[in-house]
Write a protein that binds this DNA or RNA. Structure first.
Length: 317
DNA sequence: AAGCTCATCAACCGCAGCCGT
DNA sequence: GACGGCTGCGGTTGATGAGCT
C-alpha cells in the first residue's frame, strides 16, 4: 500500500519562491496563524505543497528571524551546542534566537566543519602552532577544500583495508552519541572545554603520513584531506576536562590490549598526561598522539597537540 | 575574459513521532 | 491496539554567484 504522499504533486509549483508568493503566504499566516499547513496552500491560493509553505515561513518569512552573518558569539555557541547535542539542529536553533535549524545546519556543514578540518590538516605551514577560527571564517581562500563532490566520492569509496592500525577498532564501531539530557544541556556553558576559537590555542597539525589504505576510523584521509570531522566532533573526542581523546571506549580497550602502554608512558619522552600510540610494521615507523591540558584556571584555555613522525618531543614547548 | 571549481543558501525528500479516530 | 493524517526534523540536492586559473 505504501505511505500516501504528503501532497498532490501534480500541478504544484516547486523551486524558488517569488515575491508574490511570499506576500500571499505572509498575509495568510499573519491573519490565520501558523499550523494547518496541509490545507494552507488551498486556502491561501498558493500552488505549493503545505510542507513547502511551512518551510518557507519558518526559514524565511517569520518576523523574528535574525538576518546577517553568524557572529563570533553565535559561532562559538553553535560549536558548543553541537558538541552537546550532535546534529539535532532544531534543538541547537532553539538556543539561538532568530536562527533557524536550516540556517545553522547549512552554516555547520559549509563553514564550521571546514574550519576545524582546516585546522587539523594545514600541513603546508610547518611552523604554525596556533589557530584563530574567527580569522579563518573571514577568509575566502580555498585551502584544504572538502568539497561535497570529494566528500561524496570519499564516503562512497571508503574501504578500510588495513585493520591493523590501532585506530581501527575491529568492529569499525560508529562513534557513540552522547545522550541528550539535562546534564548535556548544562555542559554547554562556562567551564566546559570544546573546540572553539578560545580554547584551541596551539596545535601541530598532522602531516600526510596516512595513505588512502590507512584511513583511521575517526580520521579519514582522502589524499591529504581529513574527512569526517563531524564524526570526530561527535565522538566525544574532547571531554569536559579538556582532555583530547581520539578513541571511543572500545577503541581504547583494543589499543591498551595491543600495545605496551607502560613502556610508552615511561619512555624517555616522558609523556605526562599524554595518550598516544606507536605503530611499527614493515619498516613503517609511525607515531600519532595528542596531549591535552585543562587550563580552566587560566581562562579556560586548552592546549592541544597532535604530532606524527618519530620525534614528537620536538613539538613540545 | 572565459571557463571551471567551489561556497553558500534555499528548498526538497523521506522518515519518525504524535495525535485523533 | 491499529490505522491514517499531520507535523517536524535531519539529510540531501540544486541553483546561483564568487573566486580562481
Amino acid at each position: 500500500m505504501g505511505k500516501a504522499p504528503c501532497c498532490e504533486k501534480i500541478g504544484l509549483k516547486r523551486g524558488r519562491w517569488t515575491k508574490e508568493e511570499d506576500e500571499i503566504l505572509s498575509k495568510y499566516v499573519q491573519a490565520n496563524g501558523e499550523g494547518s499547513w496541509k490545507s494552507l496552500p488551498k486556502n491561501a491560493g498558493l500552488l505549493r505543497c503545505g510542507k513547502s509553505c511551512r518551510l518557507r515561513w519558518i526559514n524565511y518569512l517569520r518576523g523574528d528571524l535574525k538576518r546577517g552573518n553568524i557572529s563570533v558569539e553565535e559561532d562559538e555557541m553553535i560549536v558548543k551546542l553541537h558538541k552537546a547535542f550532535g546534529n539535532r539542529w532544531s534543538l541547537i536553533a532553539s538556543h539561538l534566537p532568530g536562527r533557524t535549524d536550516n540556517e545553522i545546519k547549512n552554516y555547520w556543514n559549509s563553514s564550521l566543519s571546514r574550519q576545524i578540518y582546516r585546522f587539523f590538516t594545514n600541513k603546508n605551514e610547518e611552523t604554525q602552532t596556533s589557530i584563530n577560527i574567527a580569522n579563518l571564517s573571514n577568509k575566502k581562500q580555498r585551502v584544504g577544500r572538502v568539497s561535497r563532490c570529494v566528500a561524496k566520492k570519499y564516503n562512497k569509496d571508503r574501504v578500510f583495508k588495513n585493520n591493523k592500525l590501532p585506530f581501527l577498532s575491529t568492529t569499525n564501531k560508529p562513534a557513540p552519541q552522547k545522550p541528550v539530557d539535562k546534564q548535556a544541556d548544562e555542559n554547554v556553558g562556562v567551564g566546559s572545554s570544546f573546540v572553539t576559537e578560545n580554547n584551541i590555542k596551539e596545535s601541530k597539525a598532522c602531516d600526510n603520513v596516512f595513505s588512502d589504505e590507512m584511513k583511521p576510523d575517526l580520521f579519514g584521509f582522502q589524499g591529504n584531506e581529513l574527512m569526517d570531522v563531524d564524526n570526530f566532533l561527535e565522538s566525544e573526542a574532547l571531554d569536559t576536562n579538556g582532555v583530547l581523546s581520539i578513541h571511543d571506549e572500545y577503541q581504547i580497550e583494543q589499543w591498551l590490549a595491543d600495545i605496551d602502554v607502560e613502556n610508552l608512558m615511561n619512555n624517555e619522552r616522558n609523556f605526562d598526561e599524554t595518550m598516544g600510540f606507536r605503530y611499527d610494521e614493515n619498516e613503517l615507523n609511525m607515531e600519532f598522539g595528542f596531549k591535552g591540558y585543562n587550563m580552566s584556571d587560566e581562562g579556560n584555555d586548552m592546549l592541544v597537540w597532535l604530532w606524527e613522525g618519530s620525534n614528537p618531543t620536538q613539538l613540545q614547548g
